[in-house]
């Protein structure tokens, strides 16, 4: 009965407020950018269909609020994610330093089975603001390598730099994680006639 044609991936985007999570998503899904800042309240959800290695994949993208006062959606929110995207602003060191706590928070809340191999992707955003840059590529890469070779992209939501490529890698890595499911799983068992009935309510007739 297994229908292998459809795949849906849950992708969660985390990072400090203002780093450009919503903007990246909007650029990717709607090819739009606005320089006006509107804080995300709670979470936004977007859907994007992509082809990954000959498979049609639906990405269910969960854009969360970076501002603490809006982070009230509960533990269950992170459950069952296939990939987690960590975003920082290359011009603001604090947002980079906070990646550790975003990552830890995610691993605690989502509790993936194999935390060491859970797919993360790191995006250093706003690289269009060249002269203000504070976090070097090298520094970001070092952190990513240390955390288990997390893929790293330098993006600009504004100028649409590397956005497509980043999300393609996100989809690809999420799909890999999702595919693990196929490792053998025994189907439900049949009932033996002499099994004790676990519940017996009044029947018909």
């Amino acid at each position: 009965m297994a229908t292998r044609k459809k795949v849906l991936l849950k992708v969660i985007i985390l990072g400090d407020s203002g780093v450009g999570k919503t903007s990246l998503m909007n650029q990717y899904v709607n090819s739009k950018f606005s320089s006006q800042y509107k804080a995300t309240i709670g979470a936004d959800f977007l859907t994007k269909e992509v082809m990954v290695e000959d498979r049609l994949v639906t990405m269910q993208i969960w854009d969360t609020a970076g501002q603490e006062r809006f982070q009230s959606l509960g533990v269950a929110f992170y459950r069952g994610a296939d990939c987690c995207v960590l975003v920082f602003d290359v011009n603001l060191p604090k947002t980079f330093e906070n990646l550790d706590s975003w990552r830890d928070e995610f691993l605690i809340q989502a509790g993936p089975r194999d935390p060491d191999n859970f797919p993360f992707v790191v995006l250093g955003n706003k690289i269009d603001l060249e002269d203000q840059r504070r976090i070097s590529t090298k520094r970001a890469m070092t952190w990513c390598t240390l955390k288990g070779n997390i893929p790293y992209f330098e993006t600009s939501a504004k100028e649409n730099v590397e956005v497509e490529q980043a999300f393609h890698t996100i989809a690809k890595n999420a799909l890999k994680q999702e595919n693990d499911v196929d490792l053998g799983f025994p189907p439900p068992s049949a009932i033996k006639l002499h099994d004790p009935p676990p519940k017996q309510k009044k029947g018909c007739c």
Binding site: M1, K6, G80, D82
Partner: peptide
């Protein structure tokens, strides 16, 4: 075992 499971696989059809 896998909270991310896509149950459509088992319920397809």
């Amino acid at each position: 075992q896998r909270p991310h499971f896509d149950l459509r696989r088992m319920l397809g059809g």
